[in-house]
Amino acid sequence: MLTVTDLHVSYGSISALRGISFSIPAGAIVTLIGGNGAGKTTTLRTISGLLRAKTGKVEFLGEDITALPAHQIVARGLSHVPEGRMVFSNLTVDENLSMGAYLLSDKALIAKNREYVFSVFPRMKERLKQTAGTLSGGEQQMLAIGRALMGNPKFLMLDEPSLGIAPRLISTIFEKIVEINQSHGITILLVEQNANLALEVSQQAYVLETGSIVMAGESKKLRADPQLKATYLGG
């Protein structure tokens, strides 16, 4: 579904990605793990068009999207939930969801997506008129994911959904991620620092280290890998 080939990205003279390649099959949950500054967020931002690649290629559904602006990439069904729950804090939950369907004009489809978001996150229905900035961390993350779902994506990229969220809510959110993948067949690329959790829900994983992929394979096998265990899984 998504193929990244030899992607190089740099911030000024500092290179953040040094030629990474990977591909994600339709219907899968794939995770990208790695420490701080490994280039995980940079990878997502480059795919969704928020950053420009120096060289390399990003193909989505067979189309080269490397040079497309962000809003045209969203229009093709690739949605990005940015790191740090970037909700529109001054808009209400309802308005945030409407913004997620910004590119859709079919009213029936928007209503259907809204119902779907409510079925996944019933909490959002309760908080409809509340200003997004006043939600708890976990609720804001739900809203950010819900907002992305409003756009009817085929492919969802989640950047650190567990960041700064109460531990009890983390497992709920990860259950929801699996549910979205299974019930709606939405392909998911998950970026996580919490490698244990990410490897648990995903089928395939790539390990990123200072801008290069150092390890790749089935999540199950990687979980058993002694080296990975020592570095990322805490023993």
């Binding site: 969704s48 809003h71 969203v74 229009a75 949605s79 940015p82 970037m86 529109f88 910004y102 992305a148």
Partner: peptide
Amino acid sequence: LATHDDEIASEAVGL
């Protein structure tokens, strides 16, 4: 208002 609140999130929803 969305652009004001968060430019990255705005672009991520397709604005």
